[in-house]
Design a protein around this nucleic acid. Structure first.
Lengths: 126, 126
DNA sequence: AAAACTGTATTAGTGCAATAATACAGTTAG
DNA sequence: CTAACTGTATTATTGCACTAATACAGTTTT
């Protein structure tokens, strides 16, 4: 069963997207694997303190991407092929790295300073 | 006059926040300086293709933070003291670096790989 | 078989971001 | 002075994220 223990939900972006990305990043990290059982819509919504429809929206998008499999009445499972794994890994790593680089460059940070910032905040920061 | 030439507006976050951050990051980079003239609400809204009220909301927040000065009928100007500069630099660098680190760690990326990603996307990517 | 779970769907309502259309007051340029 | 700009304010409307309350169909457990 997938764990949502260190799920945060504080960045202001739509909750259904946060759930979607949490699962995608977990798959990329290898923490969430092919065949893993997902918490039901109702259970996860109660766990996160959000509406079941919000979870359903995230799950629906994951299913449309072929990353989970659902069928009425039964539990939902993760479906990850090697192809999809490399696909979403490239997609998310590129998106996140480019976003961070763009922001830092816009603030006039040098490449070396960027490395320093990564190191500074990698283990707690400060 | 402040330039909005490489303003992007594609990340899905509220536009008034994007404008606010664009100006803050410009100040941190030293591209936007104390005394600089801001485009008027109407001019900038036309330039970005958004509603004047959206620009006004961003400008209003900047004024509440003391980073710009407005007065009815006249143009608006940037106001930056050394203290405020160091304050927002710490605020934004910390926020952006921590966000990037959190995302990469969540994907199981190592510290060394993170450095590699920064380098890869620093100059165009690929 | 019955109970307790699953997924799925629908309808209604709230809040915020953004647009649209004005209006008014003060400043600046010709 | 007048015209053309500034900032500021108001009201109405749209769209989306999210909540709420159901309902129904299928599966699993006992």
């Amino acid at each position: 069963m997938i764990s949502f223990d260190n799920f945060n939900m504080t960045d202001g972006s739509p909750i259904y997207l946060q759930i979607l990305l949490y699962i995608k990043r977990g798959i990329i990290a290898g923490i969430i694997c092919d065949g893993d059982e997902l918490p039901s819509r109702r259970v996860l919504s109660a766990l996160l303190g959000v509406n079941p429809n919000t979870v359903q929206k995230a799950y629906k998008m994951l299913e449309d991407e072929g990353l989970i499999q659902s069928r009425t009445g039964a539990k939902s499972y993760v479906v990850v092929t090697e192809a999809k794994l490399t696909e979403i890994r490239a997609e998310l790593l590129e998106a996140d790295a480019m976003e961070a680089v763009a922001k830092l460059k816009q603030m006039g940070v040098s490449q070396e300073e960027a490395h320093g910032l990564i190191d500074k905040y990698w283990n707690g920061g400060e």
